[in-house]
Design a protein around this nucleic acid. Structure first.
Lengths: 240, 240
DNA sequence: CGAATAGTTGCACGCCGTGCAATCTGGTGC
DNA sequence: GCACCAGATTGCACGGCGTGCAACTATTCG
């Protein structure tokens, strides 16, 4: 299982404490958001639940919403990590698609669905999440530049990365809105949507792409009335 | 000249006062951001400069940053308006491209460049701007659904609109970073970038598209090393 | 004009986010 | 083990934020 915190490196007590604290705060924030509702709790409450002072909370996060949105950062950093480990000689879009596909296997995926829904009723949380995507955009653009070469035009890079993330975001929104995340195939549901959205992007949105369902039939992906094509995962390269 | 506030409708005193106040506040905020630097002024100062009370400021905007970001909303609403007035039978991407192209002729375009640069040094301003794009995404998706038909799949719509806006955003960022906005061809510079970015999107990012320069030569749009194609505006349909 | 309605203002309150100095804790060299 | 130091936590204080509320003022309408 992919993990946000996996790191076999020997790490000192100090560093480990920081990681633990950061995690404790993020978890406390998420628990509170669940029980009290998004935007209906204070930094003080988060700190108390995490067992630190209010001041320490603000040493780790700028706001309560940031403590929630940090999970989005985790998801995107994970995807970036997977992308970096893919063979550089395969078609670019295959790498992109597989990076995000793979990342849907991460632990704690279900929380992301909740997070997206929470953002619907808390504008500040939405902003924090948008900021997370924005930060990831920069990181991914850098990684892409390393892969495509330093001469790659900026506009091409940023437009591409922005579009890819927009499609992924759209897929996750759709997934969060329509899928019960305690379902056993929740991950596959998300993966199918990401695949569909990124395939549409690769095809220049010339037409809608159906979201393949678990039972093998294609979902109602009716766009402009034409018959939607069905997306398929790229050939099964192995992770390096 | 396109205008954010143009409206020939007969409007009562009450309504006009609100419009004036809103504008006065937004202008005051922008002036302050210029003179004091983004994030270096208070709501109280904005209110004072706009000639209203602090409380009234908060009746109009949720924060100082929102008062700045409202200009982004204006730009995007303008583009949406142009899009709605285009003939519905032309190719979708032609409409999209021309809608944004056209909008670069708006008044006060230069301020947008400044706004983008300000966001680099003020995270809260960046968040407010991202929120503006997000809100516009919803509006544009609705307009697109009206055009494509109510059966259009949600994921197709949101992925498309998100990508289009990401490309436009990328174009504006690039423009803001590279172009002196007091240049006489500032508008054309932006238009060329938007055209290039949206053309790349339409082509599924199969390769970079050069940004045509005013002198007729193509700019250095070198992507993966292949020869970049040059973008061209769609045929000159007339606005309805 | 007078009543109704909509917008403005001052006030008060709890919370936010951060600089600062005191304190505590884990790492390092002896 | 002990002394020391860098780094992390904490309490405190302060200015600013964002909003509910009630009083006040301006516009609209009969």
């Amino acid at each position: 299982m992919l993990s946000t915190t996996e790191s076999a490196e020997p790490v000192g007590r100090r560093e480990q404490n920081k990681i633990d604290t950061r995690r404790a705060i993020a978890d406390a924030a998420f628990d509170l958001a669940r029980s009290e509702g998004p935007g209906a709790f204070t930094a003080e409450q988060i700190a108390a639940r995490a067992g630190v002072s209010r001041r320490t909370f603000f040493n780790y996060f700028h706001s309560a919403e940031d403590a929630l949105a940090v999970r989005i950062d985790g998801f995107l950093e994970l995807a970036l990590g997977v992308f970096g480990r893919l063979p550089q000689d395969e078609p670019l879009f295959d790498s992109i698609i597989r990076a995000f596909s793979e990342t849907t296997r991460m632990e704690g995926l279900s929380q992301h669905g909740e997070l997206f829904r929470m953002a619907n009723s808390d504008p500040d949380l939405l902003r924090a999440q948008l900021h997370s995507w924005e930060r990831a955009e920069v990181l991914i653009a850098e990684a892409l530049r390393r892969r495509l070469g330093p001469a790659t035009h900026d506009l091409y890079l940023t437009a591409l990365v922005g579009s890819v993330l927009s499609c992924t975001k759209a897929a996750m929104r759709d997934w969060a809105a329509t899928t019960a995340e305690d379902a056993t195939d929740s991950g596959e549901q998300l993966e199918a949507r990401i695949l569909a959205a990124l395939t549409m992007l690769r095809d220049g949105f010339s037409g809608p792409v159906a979201v393949p369902l678990a039972d093998g039939t294609a979902g109602a992906g009716d766009g402009a009335g034409s018959q939607p094509a069905e997306a398929a995962v790229p050939p099964p390269h192995r992770l390096a």
